[in-house]
């Protein structure tokens, strides 16, 4: 296949597999529309639907609170901007999110992902309990959303950080849930 055919195949695959795709501010209104879509698209599989819903809320709230790119919604409130995709594959669903993060936040974010991925389920629950008891605002503490995502997903977190400019990088997270 030449490059053009490759690109076309990529495009077709993407269109075919995509259930939901969104790019913009993550305000409450948008979150609720996407959440409804998830429930509707997966109404034939309540177990997976519930898992994806739980994961979605935490991923979306993380973008809403922590994205370095912020935008005003219609009511004038500032919300984090990012992208989100829910795709369906042969035996699993996959959530991908992306948002800008400031350079100084890269290390803590990566460390959190690494910590989450090396812990087994029992240790992960222990970690969640420890974080939950730390007051919000303490570096590394407070936010247990990502730990809950890992507990709900069926695979380790897949993540990467791509440099954008002097101040920001793009943080990508991929979370997979089995169909059965």
């Amino acid at each position: 296949m030449n490059t053009a055919e490759n690109a076309y195949q990529m495009y077709i695959d993407l269109i075919d597999s995509t259930i939901i795709s969104y790019n913009g501010p993550f305000d409450a209104q948008v979150l609720s529309v996407i959440a409804e879509n998830i429930e509707y698209s997966l109404s034939n599989n309540p177990r997976v639907s519930k898992k994806l819903f739980k994961i979605f809320i935490e991923l979306a709230q993380n973008i809403s609170y922590y994205s370095a790119e912020r935008q005003k919604n219609d009511e004038g409130n500032l919300y984090g901007v990012g992208i989100l995709m829910l795709r369906e594959f042969k035996d699993h669903y996959s959530f991908s999110t992306g948002n800008l993060i400031e350079k100084k936040h890269i290390l803590p974010v990566i460390q959190k992902c690494e910590t989450i991925n090396i812990l087994d389920r029992q240790k992960l629950r222990q970690y969640k309990r420890k974080l939950r008891n730390m007051p919000s605002g303490v570096p590394g503490g407070g936010n247990i959303g990502l730990v809950q995502v890992a507990l709900t997903a069926d695979y380790p977190l897949e993540y990467s950080v791509v440099p954008v400019d002097d101040e920001n990088s793009f943080y990508i997270l991929n979370v997979r849930v089995n169909k059965n």
Partner: peptide, 12 residues
């Protein structure tokens, strides 16, 4: 039936 992680802190 459902609570997010922020709510779980309040349950605690």
């Amino acid at each position: 039936r459902y609570f997010n992680t922020s709510s779980s802190k309040c349950i605690i």
